[in-house]
Design a protein around this nucleic acid. Sequence first.
DNA 1: TTGCCGCCTGTAAACGTTTACCGAAAAGGC
DNA 2: GCCTTTTCGGTAAACGTTTACAGGCGGCAA
Lengths: 353, 353
Amino acid sequence: MARNGTTVREVADRAGVSIATVSRVARGIGQVAPDTRRRVLSAIDDLGYRPSHLGRALVERRHAALGIVFPGLSGPYYTEVIGGFESEAIAARQSVLILGTHLLGHSDDQVMEIATRVDGLAIFGGTVATTSIQRLVASGLPTVLLASPPLAGASSVRSENRAAARRLTGHLLRVHGYRRIVFVGNPDRSPDVTERWRGFSDAFRDTNLEPPAEPVRSGLDQAAGLRAAADLLDADDPPRAMVCANDETAFGAYKSAAARGVRIPEDLAITGWDDLPLAELVSPPLTTVRQPMRELGALTARRLLAGIRHADDYPPDVVLNTELIIRASCGCREGASAAAGPPGSAVNADDNG
Amino acid sequence: MARNGTTVREVADRAGVSIATVSRVARGIGQVAPDTRRRVLSAIDDLGYRPSHLGRALVERRHAALGIVFPGLSGPYYTEVIGGFESEAIAARQSVLILGTHLLGHSDDQVMEIATRVDGLAIFGGTVATTSIQRLVASGLPTVLLASPPLAGASSVRSENRAAARRLTGHLLRVHGYRRIVFVGNPDRSPDVTERWRGFSDAFRDTNLEPPAEPVRSGLDQAAGLRAAADLLDADDPPRAMVCANDETAFGAYKSAAARGVRIPEDLAITGWDDLPLAELVSPPLTTVRQPMRELGALTARRLLAGIRHADDYPPDVVLNTELIIRASCGCREGASAAAGPPGSAVNADDNG
DNA sequence: TTGCCGCCTGTAAACGTTTACCGAAAAGGC
DNA sequence: GCCTTTTCGGTAAACGTTTACAGGCGGCAA
């Protein structure tokens, strides 16, 4: 009922009451005589009246909506996180606005735009300039950084990355003895990848080895992974192992390897990140790190809702545990897995990354 | 700037003008003396003023927003379609509201709710009761049914299903000579699946065979496919081929087969639908039907935008072509593909399914 | 000097709600 | 029967915009 919206006034006329009474009946608050209530209800029903959100939001000074900003990239990871977010928001009777920043330079404008339509905003790390985030926080809008460290006064919800990357890479270095290992991913584009790259380097230092100076920069989708892997495999000195920034990149690398007759893991070990449902279906099954994607989104929504109702007891920053999933693509035979964070504490209230 | 939003009045005070002048400057329309304009602009800048959407939308009687309703299920298919939709909407400077109907019975309420917040609404087939759709259409809200035939006066955007399913199943029946073929999917839950099931049955009649009386009902995600396939494979008379309603179901079936040592395609042929990026990565590569998922979403958004600006020349109903992708999971050796619709006409303006 | 015209800017109504406040009527206590 | 209390419901202001309308003022032609 948006276009020809029936208004409270029409209902009032038909029921022979004032608009105040209609409002009272519609909201179910205040004293209204049973008989009057019945008349109003039947008028509402006859006319198919639904209160306009605009009018209501204007006077109540709240939108009953949450927003989420994510990189235009789709892919299972974002879907899951957004799904968890949406699900939690709807359960709290909030609408959900989404904004993909499609690599447009001027998307900060669109972010400020969406900010005027919501009561709280979740922002994936790496999508919005710090100064814009500062402006949002300063304006008083509850803002949560998703998959990013706290920044510019905003709180954050993310998964543990660095320690898991360190264990994963350590596994390749020490259990399998690989030396020519590359990291495929761009640490500059996403805080998650930054941390994974750091953990990757940590593992080399743990083993008294010099970490690679540079990662192999690549986007996070399958096509980008395919290209990056193709370049690597066609070079003079192809790597023995690729630590990919996420599963999709790894899948792209699988494809490149298959096209060249490179065997996994005999000629090339590959690891991913996220543990998508398909990770155990590809052949060989992918060694990866599992992170609770839906929960990431759900917690973000809850954090936002707490901020909106000024529930300041809620932990400002949350770090979720990740889990190393060893399958066959690293060279292992058998499935074995290990928790990468302190077991039993699924949620940490501080940011000891 | 949502919480403590600076208002047009504060800007007016600071610039020493009336609110009308501020509005004129902010919108860049109407006559304003250069000197006044400068003063107002600097006041806007100083205060970080952004016009409230609420106020604007209320008086302009439009929300500058589009909505999309999808089944709570996530999964690559929905991601892609929603991504295409969002991308197109943002390009037209419209916000995007999403609503997953999480199998809640009372989600029709939420749909009516979101309807009061948008200028146009896209609805995935099978998510909303027909009577609710009728109410929306009657209210004058531009409404498009996605992946569904036209219904209740709403127009629709979808892919061709029936002919492609017929060709796919015909391929299994005639090229490979399989007879015990089952359809895995629930035709009652989604119009897409209904059509695929019909095409499946058509192919049997084409070959003068009796089609199976019933499909093997299953959800559309990997876990559901796994369960359905497990039941089938553990039964006394396992099928020779499974025509799965989508790729994810097929991936689940792969998993079930692998767990039981059933070989694909030697013991069991499997086909999917959607041609997800991973379809050619699993082993064996999946025979499937490709549909233009992003385009489906993008066209839906364009259809909605046309409806909003009363561009009635736009074709009301659109059917996109699909393409049969023959890989190895059906028993074929080599990749060969064939268009399932009339070649060259990517978009048909009527609904000759 | 007197109109007239065009440019600029202000006033006020409108969009659709919610709710504080007030008054009328009904109910209850003595 | 009168006063107090309660219940019910109406009036009007407020939320933040846009824009129709009108008015003031300067310039220009006669």
